[in-house]
Design a protein around this nucleic acid. Structure first.
Lengths: 247, 247
DNA sequence: GTTTTTCCTTGACCTAGATCAACCGGGGTT
DNA sequence: AACCCCGGTTGATCTAGGTCAAGGAAAAAC
């Protein structure tokens, strides 16, 4: 394990995901109670956080790194069904097991709560329940957008959609404005991208090359992506270029 | 509008979805307050309940009939992203517009609440918020299962998956046991099935014929389906025949 | 340094499902 | 009766993406 994955447990008030995670709406005293039942865990890239079917003793938030939810059929076909970014929540209160494998895609730090105390606390703390509902509704919207990608988009549109999702997320973390070139690190292997998009890794590779040849993206190495024109990328994704925002 | 779609407003305590809808956990007094702000609306098959992008003045539950959520790209490609059955909830507290078209697939009766009063009530009534969280988490699970279908299954497996979902739902409403032949009415046209599964209607038709020829299903007319052996159907769907249930 | 391993790319070929098109049958209208 | 939809079926053909196979580059292991 690299030194960087070590996380020295800090106060919630210092937490980088304080304002976006389940605890976002919590008051000072609620935060203090959460603090009592929380603990941190580190996972290395590639490590499984929870196996599908296993009962999970904890729920928690991704503090840093990226994890993925995947479903696998008996014959090995796999589909990624969720991409967990910092502040995303893992586990479902009121349910024993996980229906998916949860895997660390990069090194991951998780802020965990033992399940029972968290569930008890949730009942007494509407702020947590409310935030969790908000987050779950957002995830449901994301899953449904993803269904359109999986069901109806071409391979090229799928790749462009994935890149624009990652780019937009990065934009929301980085201060700089929405226009002008964007650069980001692809946190996924070609195979993970394929599992995300319902493609083969060969098709992913070919379409990445095609988008590069057509000037939609630039590649430095295999993982550093530059998007000179986000509008162009969104067009390629088949989305409305001005991505109709919701109230 | 046929006489059957008329719904004479009844007391919540008589409501057929009383125990499954958002109000499932409500106490008598909470129910009374809900009763004050509720009203019923009827929609004919084919009618649009909410247009994507429109702001919606209400939220509510499907009382009877089937509605669908669909997303459409500019060039007309459409993907169904949700199938709403009796007791399912429509609309999102805390959001102005709907990101999807909501359409009545059959004649539909909805129990509606004006948005603002419902939101106010939700804040004061943890039972409602809690039930809504539960339902949203279930929908998220369903959406993710669907993602596996869309991303990785063959046309034949997709059809079998859809049929087994509908059959299972029917089984949960009908008293009879899980084994032995099952019969149900397909509430969807071939085109709607195609939009659900990310296929063309021709492929749907061909695969239905193939499943019939192979004895997996029997068809009486175009919409009455008999499944002589559910286990067989689930195998065809590529699911674990004993469908690993979760705690 | 060499060897392995991991991740990625590219080419040649094939197939599942899309596309295009003809036709069927039942339930309304006129 | 004749007509016409509308939803569905079936056939012929095409193609996007899958499959199989051969490397390449860079990092990790020896």
């Amino acid at each position: 394990m690299s030194a960087q994955t070590q996380f020295s447990a800090g106060a919630c008030s210092e937490c980088p995901i304080r304002h976006r995670a389940v605890c976002a709406h919590c008051e000072r005293d609620e935060l203090e109670r959460l603090e009592e039942i929380k603990y941190y865990r580190n996972f290395e890239a590639g490590q499984t956080i929870i196996w599908s079917g296993d009962k999970m003793g904890f729920v928690g938030s991704v503090v840093s790194g990226i994890a993925s939810l995947t479903q696998t059929m008996e014959d090995g076909r796999t589909q990624m069904v969720g991409l967990l970014l910092p502040s995303d929540f893992v586990g479902r209160p009121g349910r024993e097991g996980s229906p998916y494998d949860v895997t660390a895609t990069t090194d991951v730090v998780m802020c965990c709560f033992r399940k029972k105390p968290f569930e008890d606390m949730m009942i007494r703390t509407p702020h947590i329940a409310h935030r969790l509902l908000e987050m779950t509704l957002d995830e449901l919207d994301a899953a449904r957008e993803w269904m359109l990608v999986l069901g109806r988009k071409t391979a090229r549109e799928k790749i462009a959609s994935l890149l624009s999702i990652i780019a937009r997320r990065d934009a929301s973390l980085t201060p700089h404005g929405p226009s002008g070139p964007m650069m980001f690190d692809l946190p996924l292997t070609r195979e993970a991208m394929a599992d995300y998009l319902g493609l083969t890794l060969e098709t992913v590779s070919r379409q990445m090359s095609a988008l590069k040849k057509d000037g939609v993206i630039q590649l430095e190495g295999k993982r550093k992506v530059t998007v000179p024109d986000m509008g162009r990328l969104m067009e390629e994704a088949g989305d409305d270029a001005d991505g109709g925002m919701l109230g």
